[in-house]
Design a binder for these strands. Structure first.
Lengths: 111, 111
DNA sequence: TTGACATGCAACCAAATGGTTGCATAATGT
DNA sequence: ACATTATGCAACCATTTGGTTGCATGTCAA
């Protein structure tokens, strides 16, 4: 089990950091500079946020020359749902989510 | 979709509040007094934590006379995993978790 | 080689957070 | 009726958090 669950939750507690995860979810492997373009704050502030995400192992970093590429890691997120949702509850909730998703997709087709 | 995701993440960011969820996960419907017994802080501090959990809809309360009963609500947690884990990734991760769980249960039987 | 670009490091500051204490209110039981 | 029990509300305080600015370092390209 993950010994650094605390870092994960702390990292997810901030709107800006969640937005960074969203941005990476859409397009993985972006540089610091690219990520900065999505947030209305200084590069140094974004750097701090990314550092928290890295220590929480929510994003992984690969250096390419002078560029720092950021990748999303879904494992810690999944461990959260493992913690407080029972086996059967999970299946029930998943069925609900899938149903809702299906309805939304259908709605988009018609609209 | 949930419009108050922020409250959920803020609520989960604190170790004491996560412990409260763990305690409720083991035994649902406890009073404030009972919950206080599990944490090393004043009743007022616990009250504040529970208020955050309530506004995040992570716990639901029912009054019985002068007692306040607290119940765990798994829905917001599940919505977290919906946000950053793709459909296929989720199945893969779930298979991994189930495998790990199975191994641990087996180990416990043998030990 | 040198200038521009991508990033790191450190000091600083205002606001939010997590805890305390003290007092108030309402339900319970003898 | 009244002491006890279960909880709420408010003021206060130290620490953490999220942001800034200024400067340093390392890589690329002409």
């Amino acid at each position: 089990m993950c010994l650094e669950m605390d870092a994960v939750f702390k990292a997810l507690a901030d709107e800006s950091r969640r937005k960074l995860l969203d941005v990476l979810h859409k397009s993985n492997g972006q540089t610091l500079g690219e990520l900065c373009a999505h947030l209305d704050m200084t590069r140094q502030a974004v750097t701090k946020h990314l550092l928290l995400l890295e220590t929480a192992k929510l994003v992984t970093v690969v250096w390419r020359g002078r560029e720092k590429l950021h990748y999303l890691n879904p494992v810690p997120i999944h461990e959260i749902s493992e913690r407080w949702i029972g086996k059967y509850e999970r299946h029930r909730l998943q069925a609900l989510s899938d149903l809702k998703r299906g309805l939304e997709e259908n709605k988009n087709k018609k609209g």
